[in-house]
Design a protein around this nucleic acid. Structure first.
Lengths: 122, 122
DNA sequence: CACAATTAAATTGCGAACAATCTATTTGTA
DNA sequence: TACAAATAGATTGTTCGCAATTTAATTGTG
């Protein structure tokens, strides 16, 4: 996915895993590292350095929660919000490139999700 | 895949990508890096260091072809061959863990392959 | 309250994927 | 034959995924 999304994401100057983080934040623009990891099946060993890189590029901010200082909340910057518009057409463009039928794409998502949830809970 | 194959491959002391290389070699126990890369959708930047690690662990040998010295052929060692028997039950064990029906597993493979070939040829 | 257990992130270290580039060999062509 | 183009791997540098461990804060229990 990373390789084949690259040309689509190149002008936004982000990678595919970073794009996944933005997808979550565009839904809810403040989320803890923990919750983000749960959504994306990633741990802090992956997310911490990745979020730091995204912060350096001005896409997100990382803020320690005042109520519970163990928690780091990831917040969209203005630039991070703006990027959503530029990324609007990416999912469609990617689906086109795969040459999958709509039913196949739906099946693929369903089966992979079933598998992933199963593997992750047992 | 790497994460969830890990417990199954732990006693063989190999990773999932290394297991994929062995699967190819168990079919044909001498193959060029180029041909191996084509089978696994990987390039020399990934394979060269990986094959060196496998060589250090005594699973394969890397031999420059006499006829064309640009080519490196990967060959199974005796230990590499032996490992096949120990790995016999792994695919079944994995499928069980996924909790997918047979039809779902077949669909998944078919769709992913269609997608991958398409993305890789265009 | 004291202090052990739990929790959230961060850190360390390794394997892997890949872009870009480099080196060495072979092939094709003027 | 000389030399450019093509080919196969190797190398360098970046990002990612994750296991294992560490650090710091919070929670639970005697």
């Amino acid at each position: 996915m990373t390789k084949h999304y690259r040309p689509l994401l190149e002008e936004l100057n982000i990678t595919y895993p970073q794009y996944l983080v933005l997808l979550v934040l565009w839904e809810k623009d403040r989320i803890s590292v923990k919750a983000l990891g749960k959504r994306l099946f990633l741990d802090s060993g992956t997310l911490t350095p990745m979020l730091k890189r995204m912060e350096e590029h001005g896409l997100v901010k990382r803020e320690r929660s005042k109520e519970d200082e163990r928690i780091v909340e990831v917040v969209l910057t203005e630039q991070g919000k703006q990027t959503e518009k530029q990324a609007e057409q990416i999912p469609l463009k990617f689906i086109e490139q795969t040459n999958l039928d709509v039913e196949e794409a739906i099946q693929l998502k369903r089966i992979l999700n079933k598998m992933l949830v199963q593997l992750d809970t047992e």
